[in-house]
Design a protein around this nucleic acid. Structure first.
Lengths: 222, 222
DNA sequence: ATCGTATTGGAACGTTCACTACACTAGATT
DNA sequence: AATCTAGTGTAGTGAACGTTCCAATACGAT
């Protein structure tokens, strides 16, 4: 009916989904690997465990991924993409002036319910593999940097009354905001009764405002 | 000379240090295991690696410790003891009114230079093994609780002008202070250039004061 | 000098590890 | 109908794992 296949060289059209389970199997493997890596870390997660949890044989795992490291990197990449997308959506729908509050609240909310696996994943891999696998560390850093830059924008928005001081201050405090948020989340994981995530979004804003004030004062009179 | 050994049953006097290298070997194994566990986690640390780094054969490791888990527990115990001792000393030598500042500064200072291995150890084992090894998790929690209680004392001291509100507020904020400190330290590990540990002791105090204020205000007018 | 015992050295144990080889099937293409 | 290939199933590979065994050692006490 339509244009006949040109027979010069084997230009196989890559779309068309060859076998039904292709992408679905890949996702199943990534799902299994993600939860296992978050639970047990890289060294603690065996291919056998991924095979069991995903229901797919080892040969399929090695069909989609070069080796265990490559699989872990793919897991991180997918998780980072989800995270970035969520942050972007929040930013695009929040009214100005409330950006920081919304962002923090959304992050805490999301993390408090669905994302501890992701948080665990990031921390575990950073701590365990960061020193040995620079490529993975770079990927983790890139994801962290994306989050940081969005936090910086949100803080600049929150500090907008400070004029041209707002931006550098926001850049400076964004790392602190992320670090503190992350610390609180880890605290919540280790000791859920003592860290009240609901109260935190408010209080982090208050705390950062106080630190900003402190820094500005020190800037004037060293 | 002294009392002759009573021959009823084999009551061997346990003191007296039998072989010269006994305790020293045990410490060497603990040292090697501690650094390796902090670097690579539990699953990532093999007995072979501990043997190499400590210079002692596997049989010695299994002479002093029942198995790998027991060794990890001993590592944690020793690290926690050091930590507790250091905090206690700081508390006992700090003048009242400056307790919190001193404690935070000392903790950050110590951690910034000597203790990242310890921090890594705590976090890695908590994240990696916590779910599977309740005894280890309990030990980690106990150490964390000791630190928290000392922080609570220090904060109560800092808030002393608030009278009888000081203590509950201090108890409440101590967890937050620890979580934030820990978050900042992890941030420093992942991104050393962006988190300035030296500035943090000041600013954490400022931030906590602001949060305390915020909570008191909300308490009055809900 | 001899003995007992706290350690060490080294070689094994069975199991699990990451990974591979290869026959095979299902669905798309011809 | 025949062919092709993305993906699956099974059975394996050598290496590394945690752990054990036991002979060899060296020191303290006798």
């Amino acid at each position: 009916m339509n244009a006949p296949s040109p027979d010069r060289s084997r230009t196989r059209r890559p779309g068309r989904a060859a076998r039904a389970h292709g992408k679905r199997s890949r996702e199943a493997i990534l799902d299994a690997a993600e939860s296992l890596l978050a639970e047990r870390g890289f060294a603690g997660t065996g291919i056998a465990a991924i095979r069991e949890r995903s229901g797919l044989p080892a040969s399929s795992i090695y069909w989609f991924f070069e080796n265990k490291e490559d699989l872990a990197a793919a897991v991180v990449e997918r998780a980072m993409d989800r995270w970035t997308k969520m942050l972007g959506e929040t930013r695009d729908t929040a009214p100005p002036g409330e950006l920081f509050d919304r962002l923090m609240r959304r992050a805490l909310d999301e993390m408090g319910h669905a994302l501890p696996p992701f948080l665990r994943l990031e921390m575990m891999l950073a701590l365990e593999r960061g020193a040995q696998d620079p490529a993975l560390l770079a990927r983790l850093r890139a994801g962290r940097e994306t989050g940081r830059r969005m936090t910086e924008d949100a803080l600049a928005d929150a500090f907008s009354k400070l004029g041209d001081r707002a931006r550098p201050l926001a850049a400076d405090l964004s790392s602190l905001a992320i670090a503190w948020t992350q610390g609180a989340l880890v605290g919540h994981l280790l000791d859920p009764e003592r860290i009240d995530l609901d109260a935190l979004a408010d209080e982090l804003g208050v705390a950062l405002a106080a630190v900003a004030d402190h820094r500005l004062k020190r800037e004037r009179s060293p």
